[in-house]
């Protein structure tokens, strides 16, 4: 019977330094004519210091490896053509002080930005005009309008980020989660081209 292996690489894998990666770590495998367990247990590579933080495993490496061991095997690669292995060192989580600093930075920056925006579009004048249009009285400081406005500002942002309806009305991701995903995808795309040893050797 003909030996056939179908391989679907995962697009990313997180691993620790000096780990030995087996095929089962980075791919889903279906086999014909060979025991599946035997294939999935094959070591693919060992992560070394030289890899630093990222190692790209190209599908061609896997095909070459399998053909070296089983000479008459037919390997079919389905889906992603490389796995990006992120090597996590034992670095501890961000320092609480650092986190507080970033938090404060964002807090102050956001406040400053909104004040600049209000000055920029003459929001005070607009508020005085709106207040006059509705109540018919001209006041210098229409706080009855402006305090609800300020609260609404926060509500609107939370609404946009799906904080209000989360897990209640729908399960759709927040734009921030989508943005994080896009960022990761872009990074992966860049890495798969620029860190891929298979291409470097050919150039």
């Amino acid at each position: 019977m003909e030996k056939k292996v179908y391989i679907r690489l995962r697009s990313r894998h997180w691993s620790a330094l000096y780990d030995t990666l087996h095929l089962r770590d980075i791919a889903q495998v279906i086999t014909e004519g060979i025991a599946e367990a035997e294939i999935t247990r094959l070591p693919v590579c060992k992560l070394t210091k030289k890899d630093r933080t990222i190692r790209v495993i190209d599908a061609m490496e896997i095909v070459r490896l399998l053909q070296k061991i089983y000479c008459d095997v037919d390997v079919q690669v389905i889906g992603p053509i490389q796995t990006i292995v992120y090597i996590q060192s034992k670095r501890k989580r961000a320092h609480p002080f650092l986190f507080a600093a970033v938090w404060l930075l964002l807090f102050i920056g956001a406040g400053l930005a909104v004040m600049n925006f209000h000055e920029d579009v003459s929001m005070q004048g607009v508020h005085i005009k709106i207040h006059e249009a509705i109540t018919g009285r001209k006041v210098e400081r229409p706080l009855w309008l402006q305090i609800p406005y300020s609260v609404g500002l926060g509500l609107g942002m939370l609404l946009f980020f799906n904080h209000v309806f989360k897990k209640r009305i729908n399960e759709e991701p927040s734009p921030m989660e989508v943005e994080m995903f896009n960022y990761q995808e872009n990074m992966d795309r860049y890495i798969s081209v620029n860190e891929n040893e298979a291409w470097k050797n050919n150039d």
Binding site: I134, L145, P148, G152
Partner: peptide, 27 residues
Amino acid sequence: EPRFGLANFFVVFIGLGCGIFIGLLAA
């Protein structure tokens, strides 16, 4: 520049609405 002469009460609602919209914009 019309004048509707409504109660203060309405101003609170309009302020809140303006704020939510600007909040969405900012986000």
